[in-house]
Design a protein around this nucleic acid. Structure first.
Lengths: 124, 124
DNA sequence: TGAATACTTGAACATTTGTGCATATATTAA
DNA sequence: TTAATATATGCACAAATGTTCAAGTATTCA
């Protein structure tokens, strides 16, 4: 196999250098759509903050309201509310209202599996 | 069930308010250790950037070197190298040297499963 | 040996992020 | 209606992040 860099000049005049042209081509063929990649990375990013992750972990087994989560994490109600919104936007968490109280819980089983596998990896 | 806030005064004089004392207590009992939570959130965070995620996705099926990944993503070699270091620090990616070239690949099956389940969730 | 190549590293910078404060909305109960 | 409560939201700002540039290693080959 040729192991020196290939120089590829694109239409726009940019020069691209690579070693394994075939692998780069394969990766390009198999790449997922930009909007999917963005949504996927946002999903991980939202779990990538310790306080948000703590919220999600707490909701693994029990429904909680904003002030419970504030008491649990030591954050203000406002901070919790901000974070829950981000978690809800990405469908990691869902909510139901019961009078003045809004109960939050995990949105689906995928989230639990994501946490379980992440933890398996982090612990090994 | 009592649905008004409980006011709890801690030893340090701080007042904590919550609605479901039992649930907060349960969450506190079941919480994972801080260092585990930090490592777990770092694992998600590192996947939470679109370019790093693109790198990891590309490595799902094939070993690649720094400049291949640079050609694939459109980033500089330096940027790729920085990101690979973070991925390696968290054991998402491993490397082997062959002469001047260093080949990167996914570290284990957990990473693939994390990507698969994340994508299932993001697509639903 | 010295030049070329593949990659790494540290510093600097603009951008993004998480949080708290003040204020606003929604619901209940008096 | 009014007061109290539970949560949400816009703004501001310190802290963290991703990238580039320039310089540094490590390896190969002439």
């Amino acid at each position: 196999m040729n192991l020196s860099r290939i120089r590829l000049i694109e239409e726009d005049g940019c020069e691209i250098r690579m070693i394994h042209f075939d692998r780069v081509e394969q990766a390009r063929r198999e790449v997922i759509a930009d909007h999917e990649l963005d949504r996927l990375s946002l999903t991980y990013k939202v779990l990538g903050d310790p306080n948000r992750l703590k919220i999600v972990m707490a909701l693994k087994n029990v429904e909680m309201c904003v002030c419970d989560l504030a008491a649990f994490t030591g954050l203000t109600d406002s901070a919790i509310s901000h974070q829950l919104r981000r978690l809800k936007d990405l469908a990691l968490v869902k909510s139901r209202r019961d009078g003045r109280i809004i109960y939050y819980s995990l949105d689906d089983e995928h989230v639990k599996r994501l946490l379980t596998i992440g933890l398996e990896h982090a612990r090994e």
